[in-house]
Design a protein around this nucleic acid. Sequence first.
DNA 1: TTGTAGGCGTTATCAG
DNA 2: CTGATAACGCCTACAA
Lengths: 355, 355
Amino acid sequence: MYTRTLFIDGQEDYPLTNRKEVARLAGVSEATVSRVLNGIGPMKDSTKKRVLDAAKQLNYELNAVASSFARGRSGNLGVVMPHVPKVHLFSTYYFSELLSGIGEAVRSKGYGLLLLFRDPAAEFDYVSLYRTQRVDACLILGASAIDSEIAGIHRLAEASLPFCVMDQRFEHSGLSIVAADHEQGSYDAVRHLIDGGCTRIGFLNGSPQYSNSQDRHEGYLRALAEAGIEPDESIFYEGNYSRTSGRRAAEAVYRDLGRLDAIFVGNDRMAIGLMQALREKGCRLPDDLKIVAYDDSDAASFTEPPLTTVKVPFYDMGRLAADKLLARLTDKDQTDGVINEKLQTELKIRKSSGN
Amino acid sequence: MYTRTLFIDGQEDYPLTNRKEVARLAGVSEATVSRVLNGIGPMKDSTKKRVLDAAKQLNYELNAVASSFARGRSGNLGVVMPHVPKVHLFSTYYFSELLSGIGEAVRSKGYGLLLLFRDPAAEFDYVSLYRTQRVDACLILGASAIDSEIAGIHRLAEASLPFCVMDQRFEHSGLSIVAADHEQGSYDAVRHLIDGGCTRIGFLNGSPQYSNSQDRHEGYLRALAEAGIEPDESIFYEGNYSRTSGRRAAEAVYRDLGRLDAIFVGNDRMAIGLMQALREKGCRLPDDLKIVAYDDSDAASFTEPPLTTVKVPFYDMGRLAADKLLARLTDKDQTDGVINEKLQTELKIRKSSGN
DNA sequence: TTGTAGGCGTTATCAG
DNA sequence: CTGATAACGCCTACAA
């Protein structure tokens, strides 16, 4: 018989012990070892100590895979990402903050974080992930309202599988969602412009298929309505959240400059593209046009002029969603509840809005 | 007997089949099912077809956890991240590109990608990850030369565990590394300034404990030496790769402006901070000072002026490292080889260097 | 409070 | 070419 070792040719002897050997050394049964290590059921202090000592002496560590297998759960939280190269909608700032928050929650609960990349071409088979026991639950980032995506997500819901969509709203409710309040965030942004004396406020929105875009539109309209300003569709512009689309929009915005005091832009990237292009045309910002954007990404503070923008608590969002989702996995009574959280945004005032 | 189902209360019946049921339906043994599904050994076409049909009919999917357990391998590649909130050295651009590359490689080989966050306080116990069978191999991102980190990495090496460090050089060789050629990248950057007629070229470097910083220093010196320019230590500046440190350096740089034609900066973030501060002091860029930076992050193209900078192929780096590492896991004969790859950078010329 | 033993789904070895 | 069957390490009723 040979001793299994982890090290291929290490100096130290570092054998891979298992529960059986711990039990043997401690002079108890394997079941007792498990109970001690998992803190289940009553046990004598003396046996507990013997087991713990034996485990330490043998340098025992639980085989996570075997444990998962026996429990029938992988112990992993799946995090589904949109295809990342050539990022469009999502700034990388978004990802790193969100992932940090999720990572924190996952680590504190002893779960693993399995990163999954959605293939933009193929329809993503979420259900299969669960069936193969790769994940116990999923967090879905960057979901859009594309048909195939909606279908995939709804299949998850129909199966009553534990999952949560990040920062996206869906018509059919009953889906678990953690999001930021973009309606209110947008309201605050536009309100800030109104308070600064602007009345002719344009709106450069992102792709309409995202619920975020609709939310921003509504917040924008509410602020105008409250101030008694009639919305003017001729100063609505549409981009796709990319910097390039912001540049493109600059054509129309520049043409309409005479009818604009300010413009509210759906994200920082578009705002950056817009400002670039406008300045190339000779505009002075914010004198010729005041701008408020959205996200408070890293870049927002070093554009010229620095961007007034709506900060979104991505880190907290990730952490909260993961916490809630993992809690559902543990607490039996929460199993059926739908997660529905809305986080508040915060307006960061800088020079681009004329302050 | 009850039928295990994945769905908690789904309409559809979606039973979790196992190999045994497939075997029964196909009228073969379980072993044969495995062989067909794993494509191992010779088999009659007719049995193969029967098995495949049965599997499809039952909607069979392999239980990944059970498979891992039986194989004694998790099927996961661990990716160790530095603590991300309040990013310092690494731009988020770096992460998303790197992760995309890794994700692509991992997916194409049928592995999972387990994301792990290094706790900045505690010493990270890499070895434990392998012992608990959570990962079969590790990719280490953002390693610095801090003692506890070096120690952890060396313990991995001593244990002959499969791992690879990304974009960092270590003194003690024998470690597997995939990196970019920052010496050459820096040489190219400085050479570009020299070709543009600059002779008095300052250098704002990042924290010296990173091998990247040393590499850049060497490339800088080589370019000067080749042009017969004597290095002048009085125009060496040091930051820590943060934007703030770039701003701080601006004090000294501004003071020395009379002795500077240009400056080479260790990354985009510092360059952005430097430019901000210099412009606030009334400098005209690039007329008063030419600048070349490093990374080609997203922001580089929309600073004012846009940054000439050294582009690093992060996506390729991630993909290559993961490919190599996973190959080592499969091919028996490669097991002992050390991975050592160096990727080329590319100078992106924009306005900040006076072109 | 502790031990016994069956089971989890797959792999892989060995006969046939 | 195919079928039995012993691992794999752990969990958890159930028994004592």
